[in-house]
Amino acid sequence: MLRSHLDLEFAKLLAAAMLLLSFVMLSTRRTQQLITLFAWQGTILFLSTVLVAHDAGVTELYFSAALTLILKVITLPLVLHFLIRRLGAQWDNEPLVNIPVTMLVGLVLVIFAFGLAQPISILATTIMRHTIGIALSVILLSFLMMITRRKAVTQVIGFLAMENGLFLAATSATYGMPMVIELGIALDLLVAVFILGIFFFQIREQFDSLDLHHLESLREE
């Protein structure tokens, strides 16, 4: 199945870079930097998809790679940049509680994900099968990011990063999802970002801030 040793090495390298980026995202305070990191994650995803497509000779995967490039590397970061500029939030710093502890929790999640992925990757036949564990840990780390963040924009970025992890899992376990589903997901993402963008404005109008803990109290003042 595996065309060359070099492809495998590259696949591993890209997956490792993806994992590293997830951790960096987990510890970044600046919203703008986070968007850039998200774009880089998309780029790595694009490269690894192209790699799988090249190695397995699946033409369909080239299309989904192109879709990744257009949507996750170009469009979504641009939209997000536009949004935070309009919201005046581009220099926002988020007070993160205790980064080392978050990192250690992340580490435990990675070990858990690797353990979880072991039986699946033995069954899979693709060249990327070793990276299922990494894809799972990217998903879990994005979850963690959504939990630890308090601002609306960063939570949305966490959500998008989670989708990146899912996509990586799909390309590494099987050769990607069927084209229809992929197109559907892409459209969903795009619409979700637009709707969430409208939400941002509404939340800011209501509370004069994008901090979501204002939403936790239901009492009328």
């Binding site: 590293l20 980064i99 990192m103 580490l107 990675v110 070990i111 072991q118 564990g133």
Partner: peptide
């Protein structure tokens, strides 16, 4: 500074993990 160095520690441990888990899979 503790944050910076915790990050360094974490990255090194991640390297170990990636080696153990990705490397072990290759042999399987």
């Amino acid at each position: 500074a503790p944050e910076f160095l915790a990050m360094a520690f974490l990255i090194a441990v991640l390297g170990l993990l990636v080696h153990l888990l990705l490397g072990a899979n290759t042999n399987a």
